[in-house]
Design a protein around this nucleic acid. Structure first.
Length: 344
DNA sequence: AAAGCGGGGCG
DNA sequence: CGCCCAGCTTT
């Protein structure tokens, strides 16, 4: 039996019931694929359901305010996915009359859709013979064929895509593509796969050469940077606080936060008072540190050493908003965790 | 080619 | 604590 036939047969037995497996509607499949980029299935499922409830069709999504889209995405991370999703929804409505384009080439032009996602959408929705190469597929192919080319090098990316195209099943591309990804997720797992029960173990090069642990090969990423965040949580006598939207480049674009003072290192209360007066121009009374232990919020590429400072304003914050209303805004998990536990 | 972009789960 | 997750975009 061929590689692809074994994958298909395995998939027929081990296929999970997932919310997006009951449809081939391009809107639903597109949404699920964006949400699952660099994201575990288990983490994505509740978001997928919430999203479809709020935006049943691409038209609903297109006419929603970005803030509502980001709010529903809150906690899932990589927020450019949400912004690009929204942009693409508007393009589909305005340019494509609400009908998802059906060719790989056209789909690839849409914001937030790269090679993998374009292939996934057109193969699953329109049964087009495009191979998907996600993290799971890299692992399955690298091990089974014994390929030690780095999967995140330019040549490696080309090689694996070409290999994936050679071994795919054109006749059953919809199930084959989902099958090889599912196989990578369940059977050919990253750590300690149970090769004894693997239907491909008779010809797996990595298993034969005892290199399962070493494959796939991945070039290591850049070092993690440390940053020092000081959030200024102002409170006035009317229960108002200062609140702002993150602009420009960088993390958490367009999401909301308390005024942020970033410093080169941890600072003390006197420095905070000085920064507040200089940058915000508010008369500050008592200043207290909310978290005595610095909160280390870890992103994939940055560690944010964070302190929340509570500043009691002696004059009304005329530019402030009520404390209760901040809960409606999209915020990063760092802020969300704070406002959930902090009591005025 | 390399860096930037989140958050969580697991061994 | 490091690695990985149905990757894409920008520099």
């Amino acid at each position: 039996m061929s590689f692809s036939q074994i994958i298909l047969e395995w998939y027929g037995v081990h296929k999970r019931d997932l919310p997006w497996r009951t449809t081939i509607n391009p809107y639903n499949i597109w949404l699920s694929e964006i949400m699952l980029q660099q994201t575990r299935v288990a983490q994505g499922i509740p978001y997928y359901n919430k999203f479809l409830e709020a935006f049943p069709t691409v038209h609903d999504l297109a006419r929603a305010p970005e803030e509502k889209v980001l709010k529903l995405w809150q906690g899932l991370g990589y927020y450019s996915r949400a912004r690009n999703l929204h942009t693409t929804a508007k393009i589909i409505v305005d340019t494509y009359s609400g009908e998802f384009p059906t060719t790989y080439k056209e789909v690839l032009t849409l914001k937030g859709i790269g090679d993998y996602t374009a292939s996934a959408i057109v193969s699953i929705c329109f049964n087009q013979p495009e191979p998907v190469v996600d993290g799971n597929v890299y692992r399955v192919l690298a091990r089974y064929f014994g390929v030690d080319m780095p999967i995140n090098s330019t040549s490696g990316i080309k090689y694996f895509k070409s290999l994936a195209r050679e071994v795919m099943d054109i006749e059953n591309i919809r199930d084959y593509n989902q099958g090889i990804m599912e196989f990578g997720a369940i059977q050919c797992a990253p750590k300690s796969p149970d090769c004894d029960v693997c239907p491909l173990n008779h010809a797996c090069v990595a298993l034969k050469e005892d290199r399962v642990r070493e494959l796939p090969v991945k070039l290591k990423k850049a070092k993690i940077k440390s940053r020092y965040f000081n959030y200024l949580v102002f409170i006035d006598e009317h229960g108002k606080t200062l609140w702002e939207q993150r602009k420009g480049k960088g993390i958490w674009q367009n999401m909301y936060q308390f005024p942020l003072m970033e410093t080169d290192q941890s600072v003390d209360v006197s420095k905070i008072r000085e920064l507040a007066v200089k940058n915000i121009g508010v008369d500050v009374g008592r200043v207290t540190l909310y978290n005595t232990d610095v909160i280390i919020h870890k992103l994939s590429h940055q560690h944010l050493y964070t302190q929340f400072w509570v500043l009691e304003s002696t004059t009304p914050l005329t530019n402030g908003i009520s404390w209760q209303s901040i809960f409606d805004f999209p915020v990063p998990v760092l802020i969300s965790d704070f406002i959930k536990t902090f009591k005025i």
